[in-house]
Design a protein around this nucleic acid. Structure first.
Lengths: 260, 260
DNA sequence: TGTAAATCGGCATAACCGTGCATAAAGCTC
DNA sequence: GAGCTTTATGCACGGTTATGCCGATTTACA
């Protein structure tokens, strides 16, 4: 706990607390920073005036997300995705080049990254790019092209050409289905093409999936299950998931629960 | 503890302290270098002017926050930007191909578009792309490349190459300064290059600016004032704006007010 | 509806700031 | 080397900022 902070430092830290824990209490902050509650309130008022947080009785909340179509998907089961994201973050290490595929879970991962992390991030998804811009130490590369409205990202010929020159250390894949036989699958043909290209060019592939995708398959194959390095599943995924996929050499991680 | 340092040495050491501990206090430095606080303050002022640190009350911080980024600017004066946006929307007609340049005001314009509008939108700014994704009838094309954190968009060689093939009907330019003699100007060199390229390739150029940019100029010229088709200013812009720019054949529109 | 907590505005104060001026050292010109 | 300019520094002054405290008001909740 630091003492004698400068104003900007304090406000900056408040923003961190906000983004990390989803809310802040004036009392807690006053105690933590050893200043009066009045000062904290003034800070919160200023941050709110600058549009950086939403002022509420007793503290403040992060700025309300707009309500996007893909943000809509983010709105579904946010705590599950946050748990998956928290489990995925440790796999992203400083200095890496990481590709973030289009997916609401991956957006959660991007948001969950610690602010100080230094890495090169690549994405074809504006929403994820926007989230990554909040992290000051990240080198951000945007893959352009025509945006597919369903996927919410650029996946066409141009995007495939641009992403084809990259060799990421890690590919954080978004998938529509995961099955031992069918492998990782996607709903759209072109999306699957794009995902396969990136995954095959990456040194490692990580996928974080909610329970409803486990054991299901979508029309278009992306990669085989064996090509997936790490699979992050929910803590209450069917009991034998780890054994089934683990036997294929896949590293299975349970999120937010007690298991393994 | 050293004595009798030369100015450059001292400033260099201050930078070290800054990078090492994340902040410096004027009092501490004065004591450490055995000079008056005034001298330290002068040092800090110079370093800040050179863009090497951020001056704050009591000392200085590293340039980590990085000037004012796009996400920061979004929160400033939202109601003024909304008014400008409302005035800009009528210029965007169905069927057009429109380029949205990086700018917090342009983000407001993107948000203000009616949901049913059918058009092809192009942007190099993830934040604007995210906003445009909410409009279901818009064909969205993303310009990729390395994201410049200060500008908040892709403006490098790759982005210029990709945008160079487009011939938009309308370019909604974001500018840092507007002056009759200096024309439309930008703070960053590469950003200016990018903007000029897009503007010159567009059939029409529209710029919406807040009062603080009127009559000012930034280091790098984008286009001459005459090359700007439409200029949208605030309702309380200095009275003779319309006359001055109007005499150059520029269509001046006052936003949100009673005038014109 | 009553109560405790949270908030807002005003006020006081101490620390901090920038400016202008003076001084001294260093560098330059002739 | 005399005389000038430039530069770095310190000091004094008035203005500004950050913060804590107080009183009046609003809000949440039982």
């Amino acid at each position: 706990m630091q003492t004698d902070l400068l104003l900007r430092q304090r406000q900056s830290l408040i923003q961190d607390r906000l983004q990390q824990s989803g809310r802040v209490l004036a009392v807690d902050l006053a105690q933590e920073f050893k200043v009066s509650e009045d000062t904290i309130r003034r800070d919160l008022r200023e941050l709110a005036a600058a549009g950086l947080c939403e002022r509420v009785y007793g503290g403040a909340l992060p700025i309300a997300p707009g309500g996007t179509t893909l943000t809509q998907r983010v709105g579904e089961a946010p705590e599950r995705k946050a748990a998956l994201a928290a489990a995925a973050v440790p796999f992203i290490k400083a200095g890496m080049t990481v590709f973030f595929d289009a997916s609401s879970t991956n957006l959660a991962i991007a948001q969950a990254l610690t602010a100080g992390l230094e890495l090169t991030a690549v994405t074809n998804t504006p929403l994820i790019a926007s989230a990554l811009m909040e992290k000051p130490r990240i080198d951000l590369i945007l893959i352009g092209g025509k945006i597919d409205r369903l996927v919410g990202a650029a996946i066409g010929a141009k995007a495939q050409r641009d992403v084809g020159v990259l060799r990421p250390d890690l590919c954080i894949l978004g998938v529509c289905g995961v099955d031992l036989d069918a492998g990782l699958t996607a709903i759209e043909y072109e999306d699957a093409e794009f995902k396969r290209l990136v995954a095959r060019n990456s040194a490692a592939v990580l996928a974080a999936v909610t329970n409803d995708k486990l054991g299901t398959s979508a029309p278009h194959a992306v990669i085989t299950a064996q090509e997936c390095t790490t699979l992050i599943v929910e803590h209450d995924a069917t009991g034998n998931t780890a054994e089934i996929y683990g036997s294929q050499g896949i590293h299975v991680v349970y999120a937010g629960g007690t298991k393994s």
